[in-house]
């Protein structure tokens, strides 16, 4: 695979082109998580892109709970070989496997659970992690959530369960960009103190810079070295919504709006084609 920065830049190009093509979708959070997804699929996750199975035996499992950032996931999945890159052109179009929010309904490789209605992914990840333990499968289960998503009550049911029962093959990640549809998370309904909340629920909590590959490597190495503490791990990942496109940063406005033709041109000028457009 090409170097991580080159992949992430292409993923960002894919994201803005995909949402522009259908004048809908969620570019802000997708751009903010492009570096993280690139790191995960290029370096961290042990997955078999060529032979996807729903069961995922002896593979790491990744769940996206905040399903609205599907563009970044679709892009990295296709760029990692799960399905043809050309299929990105069907995003949100009729009969596509690339539904607005992730779905297993049309058997898109790489996806094991529908998401979009928020707050459900962590529970699912706990279930998958529990089955891995029963199957003596040593691989890990990952679940990415949005920070605004933490306002959903089910997240805290799951948090309490995983902490109480010591689900230690589970790593949660919070995309902490402090933005949601109606504004800053801290204004809409504050979620602080984030670290203390998860600690109080029995989780081993880490902070990570979602735009630094070095820091990501460091944090995951620390997590690996702490595996024996039998606690579920939660990473509070600082990101910038809209990262990589200057006019989409510093605001919540691009959470769920697509760029027009002119804005697309401006964005693409900041994101040179590295791996070939779809």
């Amino acid at each position: 695979m090409a170097d991580l920065q080159a992949i992430a830049t292409q993923v960002r190009r894919d994201i803005v082109r995909m949402v522009h093509a259908v004048s809908s979708g969620h570019p802000g959070g997708s751009l903010g998580c492009a570096d993280f997804f690139t790191f995960m699929y290029a370096e961290r996750l042990r997955v078999n892109a060529n032979q996807f199975t729903m069961e995922g035996m002896n593979e790491d499992l990744f769940f996206l709970s905040n399903g609205h950032i599907s563009p970044v996931w679709y892009s990295i999945l296709s760029r990692s070989g799960f399905f043809p890159v050309s299929e990105l052109a069907t995003f949100r179009k009729i009969s596509s496997r690339l539904q607005g929010h992730p779905s297993v309904d049309k058997n898109l490789p790489g996806i094991r659970m529908a998401s979009g209605s928020l707050g459900q992914g962590l529970s699912v990840a706990i279930g998958a992690a529990t089955t891995k333990t029963m199957n003596a499968d040593q691989s890990m289960v990952y679940c990415l959530m949005g920070d605004g998503e933490l306002q959903e009550g089910q997240v805290w049911e799951a948090a309490m369960y995983a902490g109480s029962k010591g689900i230690s093959n589970l790593i949660g990640i919070i995309d902490y960009n402090n933005r949601q549809i109606d504004g800053d998370v801290s204004d809409v309904m504050g979620i602080m103190p984030l670290e203390d909340k998860w600690k109080a629920f029995g989780w081993d909590v880490y902070h990570m810079d979602g735009h630094s590959y070095d820091n990501m490597r460091e944090v995951f190495a620390t997590i690996d070295s702490n595996k024996s503490n039998r606690m579920p791990k939660m990473i509070i990942m600082k990101t910038e919504m809209g990262k990589g496109v200057d006019f989409m940063m510093g605001t919540h406005k691009w959470h769920g709006s697509a760029p027009n033709d002119e804005q697309l041109a401006t964005a693409l000028a900041q994101l040179p084609e590295t791996l070939g457009d779809y």
């Binding site: 035996m57 499992l61 529990t130 089955t131 089910q154 049911e157």
Partner: peptide, 25 residues
């Protein structure tokens, strides 16, 4: 070893059950 007491948290129970199917349970 195959029984899971979830507590009074039905939404979490349904989600966990859904996740448990991945891997054949």
């Amino acid at each position: 070893d195959r029984f899971f007491q979830i507590g009074i948290a039905e939404a979490n129970m349904i989600g966990i059950a859904a996740g448990m199917t991945i891997g054949g349970k």
